[in-house]
Deep mutational scan, measured.
Amino acid sequence: DNLVIALHSYEPSHDGDLGFEKGEQLRILEQSGEWWKAQSLTTGQEGFIPFNFVAKA
């Protein structure tokens, strides 16, 4: 599955970004460039995340 774990917390800075906490698990929905579309397994919310803040779970 496309699961990743957050290496750092991220505060959203643009509409459509997904904020998350360090250690949170996310499911990657789309990989494109440096911003990936993801869904939080904690909150169920979707949005874009910086790819370098996460690692394969």
Rank of each mutant, 00 (worst) to 15 (best):
R27Y: 11
V4K: 01
L41E: 05
G33W: 03
Q25S: 11
G44R: 06
R27M: 12
E11H: 15
Q25A: 10
P12F: 05
F48P: 00
E30I: 09
E30A: 08
K22V: 09
K56V: 14
G44A: 06
Y10T: 02
Q31I: 09
Y10L: 06
W35T: 07
V4C: 07
Q25M: 15
F53G: 04
Q39A: 07
G47F: 06
E46W: 11
A55D: 10
P50G: 02
E24C: 04
D15M: 10
G16A: 07
W35M: 13
F53H: 08
A55P: 04
L26K: 00
T43G: 03
G33I: 02
V54T: 03
L3F: 11
G16R: 09
E24P: 00
D15E: 13
G47K: 00
F20N: 00
W36H: 02
I49G: 00
K37S: 05
S9E: 05
F53T: 06
N52G: 10
W36D: 01
G16M: 08
N2I: 12
K56C: 13
L18M: 07
N52E: 12
A6W: 02
A6I: 04
G44T: 04
G33N: 05
N52I: 08
S13N: 10
G23A: 01
G47C: 06
I5W: 09
H14D: 09
W35P: 03
Q45W: 07
E24G: 00
Q45N: 10
F48T: 07
L3V: 13
F51Q: 11
D15R: 10
V4S: 04
G44Q: 07
G47E: 01
Q39L: 10
L3Q: 06
L18F: 06
L26I: 06
E34H: 14
D15I: 13
S13P: 05
Q25I: 15
G44C: 10
H8C: 15
E24K: 00
W35S: 07
W35D: 03
T42G: 06
K22F: 07
F20C: 05
E21D: 08
I49S: 00
W35I: 10
P12T: 06
G16P: 02
G16K: 08
Q39F: 08
G47V: 02
E11D: 09
E21A: 13
Q25H: 12
W35E: 05
E34Q: 13
T43V: 00
F53A: 10
